[in-house]
Write a protein that binds this DNA or RNA. Structure first.
Lengths: 221, 221
DNA sequence: CTCACCATCAGGGATCACCCTGAGCCCACC
DNA sequence: GGTGGGCTCAGGGTGATCCCTGATGGTGAG
């Protein structure tokens, strides 16, 4: 515990929530920046080098990966070796928790938490603890406890897709026609076809309906 | 538009959000009370008689009915004949919107709205307008708009499908190929095609992906 | 009985989905 | 400077999807 405030960046797409969080956080923390989208977060966090990032799980922007995408895209940044991420979400859905924790978050609070609770959680995360909302604690132990060392399997398949493939995959899984994807991403239909074929082959699926089911099961939509 | 501020009650289970909303709302509104649960809301709103209630759709307490339950339990209260309800939610799910609007809310904003937008919406709702987030507007018109007095109910479209058409529709919406449906129901592929065409025409949809989305929105899968 | 509606199926055509091969470009890595 | 991978696009093909027209037989209402 140092005497200087903990520097914090708030990442949330709701302006009202960001304002409320700023007001509710105690003097132990110093909000040095805010971001409302995945891209904004990826842009400002490395320059601000905060001690803790309060990260909303459901975020617009980027390629649709939400808070987990922020973690993935910043994972390799050496400037952030001392930065901890604390996930905040209205959701207590198992898959949301698992994906963001797998991506590197050190804690997970639901937005029912008070400002004081978030403040204390930020302090504990800064000091290396992992913090979870009480009713998630047991569940988290279930999900990670038995699994020993490697988690591997879950995002393994997704990681084998390139960035462009993931982008196309999400739209196809949502039911967009090839021509719609092409128009949206400024590609030719043939390029979209190529990406879709790659995705289906890599995931060992045979059509877009199986892809939709797969994406739903992985909470990618 | 009067010169006196609009009296407002905020109903939301997140303290941080309530604080943020208070801070972001403009001087045109005067927050006279807050509630965090269904029961609290039902208790305080009749005594405060606010002009507008900003009502979260997902609320704890009561019998689990969320914001819609608040509306139902206060519907008969004569003290609230001049009180308007404006729903706020992180969700833009069709069912959430429909249920709370049916229960009597005069508008629906997603929590991505800024404080200024909420302020303006509160003013318009107080003046009798209905206010919806832009991307919900079209959808709401679809669900309620064309029908004058009657909402014509959700099952109306479904009832227009024959038994066989519904059977085929469910399988198509689940992603079955025509030949698979044909094999499962002991029909020729051509018959399946006919039924699918009828379904799409009756529901004014253009392909199986829209059908899947439609069926999901109606919870038929 | 007639008429409307439903379920069944066919032919034919337009479009879309998916696959395979091949190719040019850029960029990072060795 | 070659080598590999990712992104882009094309041609050509097969099967699936969707629409339109048209036909048969059954069934219940008037």
């Amino acid at each position: 515990m140092s005497d200087t405030p903990i520097t914090v960046v708030i990442v949330d797409d709701h302006q009202i929530f960001r304002t409320g969080l700023r007001a509710e956080l105690g003097p132990e923390v110093d909000v040095v920046g805010e971001a409302a989208t995945v891209d904004e977060a990826v842009s400002i966090i490395p320059t601000l080098e905060p001690a803790v990032v309060l990260l909303d799980v459901h975020l617009p922007g980027g390629s649709g990966g939400g808070g987990a995408e922020v973690l993935q895209r910043l994972a390799a940044d050496s400037r952030l070796s001392d930065t901890r991420f604390l996930a905040l979400s209205v959701s207590d859905a198992a898959d949301d928790v698992v994906s963001v924790i797998r991506a590197g978050a050190r804690g997970y609070l639901t937005k029912t938490a008070s400002g004081a609770e978030v403040t204390q959680a930020a302090i504990r995360v800064r000091d290396g603890d992992a913090v979870f909302s009480p009713r998630l604690a047991g569940f988290v132990l279930d999900a990670f406890g038995t699994g020993g060392g490697e988690t591997a399997s879950a995002d393994d398949e997704l990681d084998r897709l390139t960035a462009r493939e993931q982008e196309v995959m999400r739209m196809i899984a949502r039911g967009y026609a090839y021509k719609e994807v092409a128009a949206e991403l400024f590609l030719s239909i043939k390029t979209v076809e190529t990406h879709v074929s790659s995705v289906l082959r890599k995931l060992q699926l045979s059509n877009r309906h199986e892809l939709t089911a797969w994406a739903l099961s992985k909470r990618l939509l």
